[in-house]
Design a protein around this nucleic acid. Structure first.
Lengths: 137, 137
DNA sequence: CAATATATTAGAACAATTCTAAAGTGCTTT
DNA sequence: AAAGCACTTTAGAATTGTTCTAATATATTG
């Protein structure tokens, strides 16, 4: 399949060997049109259903951490029991639905010229993230 | 002292008995001019130094959670190992210094017209938080 | 196909947080 | 001020998310 070929290249370009487990994880994460938000244990459940056998939790963590370090996914700044990740690494922001615990993207351009009047001498800005918490009316 | 009287009232108004432990915690949290950012174990260390005896970690957690539920402090949306709290419950935002792990407040008015073009039908906005991550240049 | 470098795994370890149930304290009624 | 009840504190156990360990397995290179 051209996809597994792509994922192989993707992994190699990041200095990671294309193992069976990593390729499966790539399929779940990147073989989709839409942005994908997940937690480690959510991802592990998906993998388990997909494969009828489980990838060890340590491997899932290791792989996700490698991807994060390589910039293939990013961690979302959201204070919740579990850590959320996002396959969308472009600049964007989130709604967090407190009723359903779901995350919904919104684009930079949905925030009118977000611009800071304040800055910190000697520091450089790494990211600006807006989190909008919502709940059922 | 007028402060401990105030804290007594504050606790009572929230349906909490003014115990020795809670009053000590109030002093650390609220007896200051500036906003105070803290983690549970940071707070516990401060209390230990102040008192030369320790308040059990369960009590610190319980009290902080009560205060949070009463709206006397708020949790900051920041994905880090430890949970950060803030005694400033007004609308404002944070710089998170990745080099020093410090939080610095900035005011709503330091963000030029932060306004969302997007909204979610059936949902109401609970909060809008901007997190600016910085690091040493 | 052998050698070696890297990955995977189960389970142990760890850290933050919550729970439990026993002992202590604050508050109300007398 | 003593008694009784409800609420609080406590130490330690339990739970949960995450990382570590070291033995086994797999991928890559020669």
């Amino acid at each position: 399949m051209s996809n597994s070929r792509n994922f192989e290249e993707k992994l190699r370009s990041a200095g990671l060997r294309p193992t069976r487990q990593r390729l499966e994880i790539c399929e779940v994460l990147f073989d989709r049109k839409e942005t994908f938000h997940f937690t480690i244990d959510g991802l592990q459940k998906i993998l388990k259903n997909k494969l009828n056998t489980k990838i060890s939790i340590a491997t899932v963590y290791n792989t996700i951490n490698s991807f994060k370090n390589k910039g293939y996914i990013k961690e979302i700044s959201l204070n919740s029991e579990k850590t959320y990740f996002d396959t969308n690494v472009t600049n964007h922001h989130h709604f967090y639905d407190e009723t359903t615990s779901e995350l919904i993207d919104f684009h930079d351009s949905d925030v009118e010229h977000l611009q800071l009047r304040k800055n910190l001498p000697g520091k450089k800005i790494k990211s600006i993230e807006v989190l909008v918490k919502v709940a059922n009316k």
